Computed example of a mutant assay.
Amino acid sequence: MIADIKKNAEAKMGQSIAAFKNNLAKIRTGRASPGLLDSVQVEYYGSMVPLSQVANVSLLDSRTLSVQPWEKGMGAKIEKAIRESDLGLNPASMGDLIRVPLPPMSEERRKEMTKLARNEGEAAKVAVRNLRRDANEAVKKLVKDKQASEDDQKRAEADIQKVTDRHIAEIDTLVTSKEQEIMAV
């Protein structure tokens, strides 16, 4: 029972970190990264789909992305979707290929991005702490229902706290490395 609660809490904390890493990948740094366009949605036969489902996104160089549509008529729609996204990018069409140059970030914009990374980190920590609280409440319920002893509860809560601390330290490490990546000119 208690082992299941601990295992479940650890798995959910791992999922929270995976979601956090995904959110961090969307935050722009000074370098180009194909993951930057993951959030862009393109209209495709009347429905909105992720850019990665209608085109191949790759790096041309450290400051330029290339988008290769899989269908001839999609170029204009993809260009429009990238332009209208809140990324501040201005794609240029060259035949079938769409080049997306990344403008250099100003110092102010870099600071905004580090703030955004910190906020994402805080949200991830809150999610991990909520999972800790839920796990502790589940253990308390077992004790209340006389399915576990109070000693088991204390041990379980200590184990859950260790797992929580480890995940929060991982989040802090990820935020710090992302901040360094953003501030690198």
Results as ranks from 00 to 15, higher is better:
A117D: 04
L59F: 09
A117H: 02
A135R: 00
K21P: 10
E43D: 13
I82G: 04
A9S: 11
S52A: 10
K111E: 10
S62L: 08
V128S: 13
N136I: 08
D38E: 08
A135V: 09
L89W: 01
D96C: 00
R129H: 03
S93W: 05
R83C: 08
E120K: 02
N119A: 14
A76I: 11
V126S: 11
R83F: 15
A92P: 00
A32N: 04
L97I: 15
A19K: 06
V54C: 06
K72G: 13
G35R: 03
L116T: 14
A92Q: 14
V54E: 06
Q53W: 08
E122T: 08
E79L: 04
G121Y: 05
L37V: 06
R83I: 09
A127L: 10
G46D: 13
P91L: 07
K21A: 06
V100P: 01
M74Q: 15
A18N: 12
Q53A: 13
I98M: 01
N136P: 01
L60I: 14
L24T: 12
D61I: 07
P104C: 00
N119V: 03
K7V: 06
Q68N: 09
G14Q: 13
A92W: 04
M13G: 11
S33P: 04
K111G: 04
V128N: 12
M13K: 11
R133S: 00
K125G: 10
V42T: 01
A18T: 14
S33E: 01
G30V: 02
P101V: 05
S39V: 11
L36S: 01
S58W: 14
